[in-house]
């Protein structure tokens, strides 16, 4: 029963995103908003009825899960990229809260520092420098939105079809984990005991215990990426004439109709 409700919800959600997608003729934002909020409410109601055990944290879970989905929808449908970036910051903050609810504080704060503090600011930097001449056709015309929505939500539906089986898995299955997982000698720290010493300490012991080599490799990966990024972006390239009118050098400011 649950998968079929989910399929219907996903179909409606896909329709909401389709309506909200930027189109040259203008998008039906109000209808999309109503439909989207309805779908999110349905999804959360389903979660509350079927999956979630009653708990005081659940209110925050529903609030931030709903907000995350709504903001994510806005990121992919907003015609102005700067707004996409702002909504993306909202997604990051919501996901960080959801991680805190799962007692992964260190991961949550790392997420905020890395994404909201570094990655997103750089994106915003490039967007601001590039988007000086108002809305362009790049942002007002989506590319095959119907097919994209169909493909994506079929994948999500495939996960949803199996969601009931996850619920059936016992929560404490340390004894039955497959051999491949237990090959790595990890001090299993249950969330209950983890609270005593703190998530940071526990995750530090894992990172610098069994995963030490991976940590070193990620360091090397970051170094290579840094060298690569510098090498790419310092390259002098010829400017191709695209035929589009260019702003005179130094002119900043975009045409916005007065409100």
């Amino acid at each position: 029963m649950i998968p079929y409700i989910l399929y219907v919800l996903f179909a409606l959600g896909g329709a909401a995103i389709y309506l909200a997608m930027p189109k040259p003729s203008g998008s039906q934002r109000r209808a999309a908003l109503v439909l989207g909020v309805g779908v999110i409410a349905g999804l959360l109601a389903l979660m509350s009825m079927h999956f979630v055990a009653p708990n005081s944290n659940n209110f925050f879970f529903y609030m931030f899960a709903g907000l995350a989905i709504l903001a994510a929808g806005r990121v992919v449908t907003h015609p102005v990229p700067t707004y996409s970036a702002v909504y993306f910051a909202l997604v990051i903050l919501c996901v960080a809260v959801l991680l805190v609810i799962q007692r992964a504080e260190f991961l949550a704060v790392a997420l905020i520092i890395i994404y909201a503090g570094a990655i997103l600011v750089t994106y915003a930097f490039v967007i601001m420098l590039a988007q000086q001449s108002g809305a362009v056709s790049t942002d007002t015309r989506a590319r095959e939105p119907l097919m994209a929505i169909l493909v994506s939500f079929v994948i999500a539906g495939a996960i949803a079809g199996k969601i009931e089986q996850i619920d059936a898995v016992p929560v404490k299955m340390t004894a039955q984990v497959p051999q491949a997982v237990t090959d790595v000698p990890i001090e299993t720290t249950l969330p209950a005991t983890e609270m005593e010493s703190g998530h940071t300490k526990a995750i530090g012991e894992i990172m610098f215990g069994p995963y030490l080599v991976v940590v070193e490799l990620s360091g090397i990966l970051l170094l290579i990426a840094m060298v690569g990024a510098i090498a790419i972006s310092r390259k002098q390239v010829p400017i191709e004439d695209t035929g589009e009118p260019k702003l005179p050098v130094g002119q900043i400011g975009r045409e916005v109709p007065p409100f």
Partner: peptide, 15 residues
Amino acid sequence: NPDVGLLYILGVGSM
């Protein structure tokens, strides 16, 4: 007094 108090300040500062 969260477990990650110091990082919290860094995160907030970066926002």
